[in-house]
Amino acid sequence: MTRFAKLLLGAALGLAVAAQAQAQSKGELHIYNWTDYTSPELVKKFSEETGIKVTVDTYDSNETLLAKLKSGAAGYDIAVASHDFVQILSREGLIQKIHAAKLQGYGNMETRWQNPAWDPGNEYSIPYDWGTTSFGYDTAVYTKPVDSLKTFYEPPAELKGKIGMFGSPTEVMSLALVYLGKPQCNSNPADLKAVSALLEKQKPFVKLYNSDGIQDRMAAGETVAHQVWSGDFRRARAQKASLKFLFAKEGGIAWMDNMVVPTHAPNVENAKLFMEFLLKPENSGLHSTFSGYPTAVKGAEKFTDQAVATAPEYLPPKDWKYTFAPSCDEKAIRAYDRIWTKLRQ
């Protein structure tokens, strides 16, 4: 080996060691989140305060998250999962107990979101943000008052042929079950037949089944009523003021996204630091402004863009009944699938 090559090798080794030392001293945090769901401003602020280097990786469905964590080769410290998947992930041993109730600032969380059904005692998870699912409609086209989901399942003449439904079977079934007053994850034959009959009867008046592009369709008047997530509808209403989100007397569906820590996370302490960071109202507000959804932290609304904080879609009546649809067992999923294929055969 020539002297020059030796020198070069030595320098390279030195650099590598130095880089590693640096990385260790400040620490890292790998976040795995839905696309367009992590505020860059928030991440920057966290890095500035703690010196921790944050990397964000994204996914497009709970199933992708599950598959990635199952494959074992993930290396993420924080993942964001829907409430129904928190249960699945903990049952499969893919996320670890973090005892979130002991985190600094846990008390900042609204009491209604503490100790949720999908994670008793907040052992595995802490809420990220939440929303609801119901129908929204155009009050300029249908002027009569609406208080029931019936208006959309058995529509009046003004709405016929102009209703949009979600394109995913589980979400279509869960709201239909709420309307019928039946339990979720149902595999009772009589209830399933009732759901099937309801959707078959509604189909002639449904323009399309698609969960994408709702905002655009409602704003353009392509559909005048749509099954919709609160956040999508808020954006549509911003374009067309006559749109209204229904808090039906039968109730509605709610969902919560949660931060969890994968079992083999390399930087658990940093993950907890990030959670505590997000439990502070000012940081939670920053996140809420970016995601456009309300969070579970008290007082966050003061630091949130007012268009988000005061959106009527996020302020259901106090006594409104919402159901967090749990993850269903195989039997119910198979039955939903059958109703769904039959509906569209």
Partner: peptide, 16 residues
């Protein structure tokens, strides 16, 4: 999405 075709059916079975 009012009617299923083979492609969408396959996609459906692999997802929801």
């Amino acid at each position: 999405g009012r009617k299923l075709l083979i492609g969408s059916l396959i996609q459906l079975e692999f997802t929801s």
